[in-house]
Design a protein around this nucleic acid. Structure first.
Lengths: 149, 149
DNA sequence: AGTTCTTACCAATTATTTTCCTGTACATTT
DNA sequence: AAATGTACAGGAAAATAATTGGTAAGAACT
């Protein structure tokens, strides 16, 4: 992981379809060297996968919400994590410091879909308490943040 | 935007490097038809960009935090949004309902980098109050969530 | 009904890109 | 100095993507 690798990652984060020749020109390396570096970055897990950044609204997921979860004392935490990992509406789930146990980011077709989701969490005895915050608008939503600065 | 388009998006979200032939086999379409659909999805903005999912830890961004921002009454909100859009540590920034104005997701090299970030927000008179929640571990972190149940 | 327009699709060709292989240069170790 | 390892470049081969031209189905209009 040197400066060149970081540059390549930056380029791919912006546009993962850039050709090896193109990237090579940007980092002053031959296409085959760039290829070898990308292969290594994927193999070592620095690059987890190639993916797309989609417009969730266009896909019918109009609602973005953060659900703060206070896990109930008798909750099966492993089951909770599995549930979060598998649930299609869950975009992110982090164990956090502070008053809450988990911060869960969910995307849903409509506001009406949030209640059944919370009800399900309750039914499974995960919840001691929760708080839901709706995102009204999004200023920025990147997976990637530039490492420099 | 039909069912086939959604399938294609699902496939690309999983692995944006799948070949047109491959995708075509999955959705029962010729490679050129798949290509045409992807081109259209990009042109219409449903696919915002092709990108990578990187391991932030490996890139030296060990800390993930959510900063809840209560904007000060006299804050220049447009300036705040510009600041958020440009700041390299900011991964997400959403205007939200509830007690706070904004939810800001940041990635930083170390815990020590959070304070200067907050100080800068204060210096620019954006902050009335704030609360920072650190992510201890991440159960899930996807950009994409499947639309179907 | 016939004509035009549009849209989606496929097959075949062409262009580009990726992949794989080999040799070289350079640094490190013995 | 010889041996080893690593990163790189160049080029051939393979795979993939983009383009083009043509067909078919359906909608809108005459």
């Amino acid at each position: 992981m040197d400066e060149t690798d970081r540059k390549i990652i930056g380029i791919l984060a912006q546009d993962a379809r850039r050709s090896l020749t193109d990237i090579g020109a940007a980092v002053e390396l031959s296409p085959s060297s760039v290829n070898e570096r990308i292969r290594r970055l994927v193999a070592s897990g620095v690059i987890r996968r190639f993916t797309i950044d989609a417009d969730h609204r266009a896909l019918g997921l109009d609602v973005l919400a953060f659900v703060w979860v206070g896990l109930s004392p008798d909750a099966d935490e492993a089951a909770f994590r599995t549930f979060m990992a598998d649930h299609p509406a869950v975009a992110e789930c982090h164990h956090v410091t502070g008053a809450w146990s988990y911060c869960v980011k969910v995307r849903m077709p409509s506001l009406g879909d949030i209640e059944p989701f919370l009800a399900e969490l309750k039914r499974r005895r995960f919840l001691a308490r929760s708080e839901t915050v709706i995102a009204l608008s999004t200023v920025r939503d990147n997976q990637f943040t530039s490492p420099e600065r």
